[in-house]
């Protein structure tokens, strides 16, 4: 990260190589089209580079920070292409089924975090999981989720609230 902040090209290359599969994988999960995902993932690295100063090591690991940037970049694209159908059910299945394939290179706490959140996600009702995924991965507001799911706004808000409360409860259980 120090290299990112100071603009060293070699450090940038190493950084990209180390995280490209994570960033590209997330972008592909959201936008669904390889060429678009590649553009989104590259944009995410460029933003990470430009805003490396915004990364605060005290706030946590690099990966969640970088993935949040990638998610934002992907949402920008998804929002501009309103014709693209959302497939939250497919994404929920994909997230739940994620194998330990890439885990060899992951830090131990990342593996533990991923396992806990996967178990937590599996504990949500289908409606709650869909609402949470539409909000977090596709950047939809509660109102947009309500319209898409054909339910009242209050129902969409409740699904997000209960879903997130449950995720948080399962996720934090060993931390506190």
């Amino acid at each position: 990260m120090a290299g990112m902040a100071t603009g060293d090209a070699q450090a940038a290359a190493g950084f990209v190589r180390r995280f490209q599969a994570r960033v590209y994988g997330l972008a592909l999960s959201i936008v669904g089209v390889p060429a678009t995902a590649e553009d989104v993932a590259q944009e995410a690295f460029v933003r990470a580079w430009r805003f490396a100063g915004g990364y605060d090591p005290r706030r946590g690991a690099v990966v969640p920070w970088l993935l949040a940037i990638a998610r934002n970049a992907a949402i920008d694209v998804v929002r501009m292409r309103r014709d693209q159908p959302y497939q939250p059910e497919v994404l929920v299945a994909l997230l739940g089924a994620a194998e330990a394939a890439g885990h060899a290179q992951w830090a131990a706490d990342e593996v533990a975090d991923a396992d806990r959140i996967r178990v937590a996600l599996a504990a949500l009702s289908r409606e709650q999981a869909t609402a949470v995924v539409l909000a977090i991965f596709y950047g939809l507001t509660a109102k947009e989720i309500a319209e898409r799911e054909g339910v009242p706004l209050g129902t969409a808000k409740t699904r997000i609230r209960l879903g997130m409360a449950r995720l948080r409860e399962h996720f934090e259980v060993r931390d506190e």
Binding site: V16, A21, Y24
Partner: peptide, 19 residues
């Protein structure tokens, strides 16, 4: 933190050569 952790579940995929 819980919301961000969900992003960890996206399966890693190697991008095309030249990325």
């Amino acid at each position: 933190r819980a919301a961000d952790a969900l992003l960890l579940l996206a399966p890693p995929v190697e991008p095309p050569p030249g990325f």
